[in-house]
Amino acid sequence: MNIMQIKQIAIVDFLLAIGFRPTKETAASAWYHAPYREDEDPSFKVNKNRNIWYDFATAKSGDIIDLAVLVYRTQNISKVLKMIAQATPAVPLQVRTFVPHLQTPASDGIRAQISAFKNLRVQALASMPLLTYLSKRGIDMGIARQECKEAHYTCHGMNYFAIAFPNEAGGYEIRNPYYKGCIAPKAVSLISQGQTDCICLFEGFMDYLSFLTLRKLERLSVPCYDADLLVLNSVNNLPKVLPRLRAYKRIYCYLDNDDAGRRVVDMLRELKGDAVHDMMEACPLYKDLNDILVGKKRMP
């Protein structure tokens, strides 16, 4: 098929063919978990009348080819066209069937992403592109090698590799310069220091690595050096760990300076009151710990 024929394929049919179903659908639009990144709250919308998509979380948009470039992680358009053609029958837009108000559990999009990972191989972090990426983010290389692994896997028939951060359930948070996701099972990561009554809380593992680097460089005031360290790997994991957090006398939150981070702090303060300390409150010009590490300030 040529480009014009490819563009006649409905994006919703392409997404269905690669394992993604809408969480909500009307006659004019469909909402999804973004198919090329971790997206726990559906923020990816397809306009079925115009056959275009928009990712509200990243402000990216485009047609089916633009989407496939992100899904298959290649700028080789010839390869992209071939993979779309192999995945999707060329169904004309006007004859596509429609099932009104289709509802699926919110986790289906994540399951589809997870099921796409094949042939997983985890090894020591040594790949120069991955180390270079972490170095550009200011992360200490010794800390990176100690805390992270390197995952090699296939996804939709193509080979990839990424930084892998283990969680306590045996899964991995994975990231490279082009992708952020999870290899199941999804869970928090707890780094226990033994007997302690305080804990430091982080949203993602890049925040955790930034914290360790800032602490090593003595650029961060750390109120408790022997605290347990808990990486949520998603703020949606907070309810799972609330029973454990009740046991701590002091909770130091190094969460993002955004609405999601503040909601977590507010929720914890309802649970533990003055025992909860928002450590990012003193750094309002920085979105997160990594921005502090690399000196990236937001506009006041």
Rank of each mutant, 00 (worst) to 15 (best):
N2V: 03
Q5R: 12
V12D: 15
D13E: 15
D13M: 08
D13F: 07
L15C: 07
L16R: 15
I18Q: 03
G19I: 04
G19V: 06
F20R: 01
P22F: 08
E25I: 12
T26Q: 08
A28I: 10
A30S: 15
W31H: 12
W31L: 14
Y32E: 05
R37N: 12
R37G: 08
E38Y: 13
D39G: 04
E40T: 15
D41T: 15
N47C: 08
Y54L: 13
G62C: 00
D63Q: 02
D63A: 02
L67S: 00
Y72W: 08
T74I: 03
N76Y: 00
S78F: 05
L81V: 02
A87N: 03
A87I: 03
A90K: 07
A90R: 07
V95S: 11
T97V: 09
T97H: 11
P100M: 07
P100V: 06
P100R: 04
A106C: 09
S107A: 11
D108I: 08
R111E: 14
R121W: 11
V122Y: 06
A124T: 13
A126V: 14
M128G: 05
M128L: 12
T132S: 13
Y133H: 11
L134F: 04
K136L: 10
R137S: 01
D140P: 08
M141T: 14
G142W: 09
C148D: 04
C148S: 05
E150H: 05
E150V: 07
H152E: 12
C155N: 12
M158Q: 15
I163A: 00
A164T: 08
E168S: 14
A169T: 03
R175F: 01
P177N: 04
K180H: 10
C182N: 13
A184G: 13
K186Q: 11
K186C: 10
V188G: 09
V188T: 15
L190M: 13
I191P: 05
Q195S: 12
G204H: 04
M206R: 02
M206S: 08
Y208M: 09
F211T: 04
T213W: 06
R215A: 14
C224N: 07
V231K: 00
S234E: 00
K240I: 09
V241A: 02
L245V: 02
I251D: 00
Y252F: 13
C253I: 02
G261C: 01
R263L: 04
D266Y: 01
D266E: 10
M267C: 13
M267R: 12
E270A: 07
H277P: 01
E281M: 11
A282F: 05
C283N: 13
Y286A: 07
D288V: 07
L289R: 06
L289E: 06
L289C: 08
D291R: 03
I292L: 15
L293P: 04
V294H: 09
K297R: 15
M299R: 14
